[in-house]
Simulated assay, not measured.
Amino acid sequence: MEWSIQEVSRLTGVTSRTLRHYHAIELVTPSRVGDDGRRFYDARCLLMLQRVMLLKELGLNLTKIREVLSRSTDEVQALQTHLEWIETEKERLTALQASVQSTIRALQEKEMMMPEDMFDGFNHADYYDEVSKRWGAATAEQSDTWWKNMNATDRSDFQAEIKVLINQWKALAGAGVEPSNKEAQELAARHVQWLRTVPGIPDDMRSYVEGLAQLYADDPRFAVQYQLSEDDTRGAEFVKEALLIFAQENL
């Protein structure tokens, strides 16, 4: 069975102009072209078109799509791979949906918005260059790959742990505990242990922790997480001092 280019366009939503372009670049070739120049597509052509559409939805450009298609000859295996990519994207979109819902809820209830909630599901490339500059490309690459490969449950568990740490840091800072206090140093040890769960961290753990401690206080994206209130920014300084003491004495 075959379908004309007009029928394929109507069924798929892909314009005739785009289908002709795919033919011209040999991405989706019609099963035959009539004497009058009309293109016709059989089931195999439609399968190839479906794969192209799936890969475009996943953000690949035509050059990359061609590379992917050229590497896979087993259609079932190829579609299974595409399905895995779709599942990964589905998890990302679910996280993105949750982050927007969290922001709406925080705005409605006048709560402080947590950056890890607001930006969960977004592309973390903005941090890639910064990590690469501070701790090297290898660290950035390993951390980025690790984050992208995490499933929704693992990401949730990882973020839940930092939320607990943040709340405990704020509680100690709000209580007026000194950064050198035993309780603060025990929390610093837990924080460092949490940091060690991220692959690719530098061998020089002391410099790494000292750099992060300074970043927590200096960078508003991090400092806001440790604010005791909208006008009380003591929390980030408290975390910085406690981590610096821990790093100097234990790393």
Rank of each mutant, 00 (worst) to 15 (best):
T18P: 05
L19E: 02
H21P: 06
H21A: 04
E26H: 14
L27G: 03
L27D: 01
L27K: 01
V28P: 02
V28E: 00
P30M: 01
S31V: 00
R32D: 07
D35N: 07
R38C: 15
Y41R: 02
Y41E: 01
D42Q: 05
A43T: 08
C45F: 03
C45P: 02
L47V: 15
L47T: 15
L47S: 15
M48E: 14
R51A: 08
E57R: 11
L60K: 09
N61I: 04
N61P: 01
K64V: 09
I65K: 04
R66P: 05
E67M: 07
L69K: 01
T73P: 09
T73M: 14
D74M: 01
D74F: 01
L79Y: 10
L79Q: 09
T81I: 12
H82D: 13
W85D: 11
W85L: 07
I86Q: 06
I86K: 08
E87T: 10
T88M: 06
E89L: 06
E91N: 07
T94G: 11
A95G: 11
L96S: 08
Q101N: 10
I104F: 08
R105P: 09
R105C: 13
Q108F: 08
M112S: 14
M113V: 12
F119W: 09
F119C: 02
G121K: 01
F122V: 10
A125P: 13
Y128E: 06
D129R: 11
D129P: 08
V131Q: 03
W135G: 00
W135M: 00
W135L: 00
A137C: 09
D144G: 10
W146C: 04
W146N: 09
W147C: 03
N151A: 03
D154S: 12
D157M: 15
Q159L: 15
